[in-house]
């Protein structure tokens, strides 16, 4: 696989961009940072499928496409299916010798939002991983259905105010905890599972390169801070991602072959969860005195999760 050096940013910047501007994603959207980085970190031909969501509606507005590679839009649940199908056909045609250019390296990638990954496309993703296709699924996790106006998904964290779980006099917003998709995918048999965030660009590029080089299904959960639905200023996308990774709300780790867990980023100064929550409009109501217990609960859960990850890393299980 032809990879671009990610040793330092200067070397990485010599890559040839394959994701064009003038897509219609919101200013400051982290989706395009993640997609750009994936396409920049390799020189291989990419076959990309994207299911319905912000990324799809914004990068393929007829008569324009922002993709400089083979790309297909498919139904809400089928990003994994399309990538798996293309990969199966590629293998079959390679075996039969009907490919025009059989030696060109090709990688299969699927992009989905968290709505289509955690909820709607879950069964299809699970099936594609179970069948063991050689592809990488990247979930752009912005913790709600941002494309349709910010409804809750099963990735929405507890306490967030969304349009279908609004905070108000009787409710503090979303009542259920975020689904642990990484554990599910690791147990599902994915060869490589990782959680990444765009502010740690090197960590993210390395995870992408590992996933692309792995022979087997890979799942990557990428934090994508949503300026519109998380309610923060567009310029703060990277600052919010920094708060998420440094407060350990969004810990960065990888699981290889379902067993070997490595923590890939350890913040030097761990910030309180309160700082992360305070920076976003969707958690504003948690700072009312009657909701103070929720922030304490958040902190406890984040600490417990970090403790669990560290113990798993140490025990190598």
């Amino acid at each position: 696989m032809a990879i671009t050096s990610v040793k330092n940013l200067k070397e990485f910047s010599t890559t040839n961009e394959r994701f064009e501007g003038a897509h219609l994603l919101c200013p400051g959207c982290a989706h395009s940072m993640i997609v750009r980085e994936l396409m920049n970190c390799t020189d291989d031909n990419l076959v990309i499928s994207t299911n319905t969501g912000c990324l799809e509606v914004s990068t393929a507005v007829y008569p324009y496409t922002s993709w400089d590679t083979s790309w297909i839009h498919i139904g809400f649940e089928n990003a994994a299916t399309a990538a798996a199908g293309a990969e199966a056909m590629y293998k079959a045609r390679k075996r039969k010798g009907t490919l025009k250019n059989p030696d060109a390296p090709v990688k299969f990638v699927a992009f989905g939002g968290d709505g289509s990954t955690y909820d709607i496309g879950f069964q299809w993703l699970s099936g594609a991983v179970e069948r063991g296709h050689n592809f990488t699924y990247i979930c752009l996790d912005n913790e709600n259905y941002a494309n349709t106006g910010g409804q809750r998904s099963s990735s929405t964290p507890i306490g967030a105010s969304t349009t279908t779980a609004p905070a108000g006099r009787v409710s503090y917003g979303e009542k259920r905890n975020k689904k642990d998709m990484l554990a599910i995918m690791a147990a599902n048999g994915a060869s490589y599972v990782a959680q990444v965030a765009p502010n740690k660009w090197k960590n993210m590029a390395q995870a992408f390169q590992k996933a692309l080089a792995t022979d087997g299904p890979c799942y990557i959960n990428a934090l994508s801070a949503c300026t519109t639905e998380w309610k923060f200023d567009p310029k703060d996308t990277i600052n919010i991602s920094d708060l998420a990774t440094d407060s350990l709300v969004f810990p960065l780790y990888e699981i290889i072959d379902g067993t070997e867990l490595n923590i890939t980023y350890r913040p030097k100064n761990v910030l309180p969860v309160k700082d992360y929550l305070a920076a976003q409009g969707r958690f504003k109501h948690l700072f009312k005195p009657e909701n103070a217990y929720l922030i304490e609960e958040w902190q406890k859960r984040v600490d417990a999760k970090w403790e669990y990850l560290q113990r798993r890393e140490e025990a190598r299980v």
């Binding site: 940013l9 200067k10 990485f12 501007g21 395009s32 940072m33 750009r36 660009w201 996308t237």
Partner: peptide, 13 residues
């Protein structure tokens, strides 16, 4: 020329 702006620009700009 640290390239921070380059890597994080969402619009390849």
């Amino acid at each position: 020329d640290c390239q921070n702006c380059w890597v994080w620009c969402p619009d390849s700009s």
